[in-house]
């Protein structure tokens, strides 16, 4: 500001300091590309109460109570209309064969479409709940399909995996499940 006849020195350098701060901030933002994923804030918290009807006749529906006790389980949020989900099915099947209990929630799905999807891609799910209005996603902090959650025996969400479980990520998921045993 033009105010004083002799502006104090530090005031004149203030814009430079602020500018350097700005450059540092955006440089960090630029070189450490932030993940665009929206992470759940429910990790370490209890699975909220839900009770979903069966999505297909051959599997029971899914409620919170079904996921308690025993060993950690994998909760897979998927849909038949989701193309990446089809690519993920093999890895889920692999996990099932390795003894993992996989529960599914079909988001905004139709029974016929889902039946075709399962027939084509396999059915690794012990239970499949139908959520036609994405409600469970808002409860557990899921923002898309597919997503997978590791839930321990006490019903605490231990880990969220956003996107497809790639073939090379299967051991990592197994490790997460193992971790959840403690």
């Amino acid at each position: 500001m033009s105010a004083p006849a002799k502006p104090s020195r530090w005031a004149l350098w203030l814009p430079v300091v602020l500018f350097v701060g700005f450059i540092a901030l955006v440089a960090v933002g630029l070189w450490r590309p932030a993940s665009r994923d929206v992470h759940s804030a429910m990790i370490g918290k209890e699975l909220p109460r839900f009770d979903l009807p069966p999505a297909v006749p051959e599997r029971p529906g899914l409620a919170r109570g079904d996921m308690l006790g025993g060993k950690p389980r994998l909760l897979n949020i998927f849909a038949s209309w989701c193309i990446p989900c089809a690519a993920e099915a093999q890895q889920l099947e692999q996990l099932r064969q390795l003894g993992v209990e996989v529960d599914g929630v079909a988001i905004r799905d139709k029974q016929d479409d889902l039946a075709v999807f399962l027939a084509r891609n396999g059915n690794p799910y012990a239970r499949i709940g139908a959520d036609p209005v994405s409600k469970i996603q808002f409860d557990i902090g899921s923002s898309g399909v597919p997503e997978s959650f590791v839930v321990d025996a006490r019903g605490v969400i231990r880990y969220q995996h956003i996107g497809v479980i790639a073939p090379d990520q299967v051991p990592m998921i197994l490790a997460r499940l193992k971790e959840a045993e403690q």
Binding site: R36, V38, R108, V133, S134, K135, Q137, F138, S143, G144
Partner: peptide, 23 residues
């Protein structure tokens, strides 16, 4: 909106935004 990221759920056609509006 969780999928469009730059918009509120009141301005979005994304299905998840519609579901959130409904909730």
């Amino acid at each position: 909106c969780l999928q469009c990221q730059g918009q509120s759920i009141a301005d979005s056609d994304a299905p998840i935004a519609g579901d959130m509006r409904s909730q």
